[in-house]
Amino acid sequence: MIDYRKLGYISEKQHTFCEFEGKMVAEHVITRNGFNDNYSILYQKRAPTHEVNAEIYKSENPFFPSYNKLSNNELKRRHFKTPNYSKEGNLLEARATLLVNNTCSVGILNQTKNDHFFFANADADELYFVTEGNGILQTVMGEIDYASGDYLFIPKAIPYRFLPSAKSNMFIVEGKNNFGIPKEFRLAQGQFKLDAPYNHRDFHAPSRLMELKCNENYPIIIKKDNVLTKHEYTDFPYKVVGWDGWYWPFSFSIHSYQPKTSSVHLPPTVHTAFSGDNFYIMNFVPRVLDYHPKAIPCPWPHSNIDCDEAIFYISGDFTSRKGISNYSISFHPSGIPHGPHPERYEQSIGAKRTEELAIMVDTFEPLFVTEAAAMLEDKKYHYTWDSHEHL
Rank of each mutant, 00 (worst) to 15 (best):
D317Y: 04
P301K: 09
I181H: 11
N33G: 15
D277H: 12
V140S: 00
D37T: 08
F312Y: 07
P249V: 01
N36L: 08
H116L: 11
M375R: 11
W243Q: 01
D115M: 05
D308C: 11
K113V: 00
E365C: 05
G350V: 05
P297I: 02
M141D: 11
L194F: 13
I222S: 00
V130M: 11
S71E: 15
A147E: 10
S148I: 00
K167N: 05
V369T: 02
P62D: 08
H292N: 13
Q14Y: 10
Y198I: 00
S330L: 12
K13R: 10
S86K: 15
M360N: 07
N199F: 13
V270I: 11
I329C: 03
P62W: 04
M282T: 05
V25H: 07
N61F: 10
I254W: 07
T103L: 01
P164T: 02
P342L: 07
A295E: 12
V173S: 08
Y198D: 01
P259L: 00
D3S: 14
I296M: 08
K167I: 01
N226S: 09
Y218F: 14
H200E: 03
F117M: 14
F236N: 14
T49A: 03
D115V: 05
A273T: 11
K156Y: 07
A374H: 03
H265K: 11
F129E: 00
E355T: 15
N121G: 05
G175H: 01
M170E: 03
A54K: 03
P366H: 14
K294P: 02
E143P: 10
A54H: 08
V241E: 05
S66P: 08
Y280W: 06
R95N: 04
S320Q: 12
N84S: 06
H390G: 07
Y85F: 15
S387T: 04
D115F: 06
A47K: 15
V288N: 13
Q189V: 11
I56S: 12
P333E: 02
L357C: 12
S275I: 09
H390T: 15
P197N: 12
E371L: 08
E174K: 11
S165F: 02
N226G: 01
G245P: 08
F119K: 06
L75N: 03
N326M: 08
E51G: 09
E143G: 07
D195S: 06
C18E: 00
R32C: 01
G335H: 09
I281F: 00
A122K: 10
A122W: 03
M1E: 12
T16D: 09
E60A: 04
F252C: 00
P293M: 04
N199S: 02
I136S: 14
A94P: 15
Y67R: 03
E27Y: 05
H231K: 10
Y291I: 07
L152F: 04
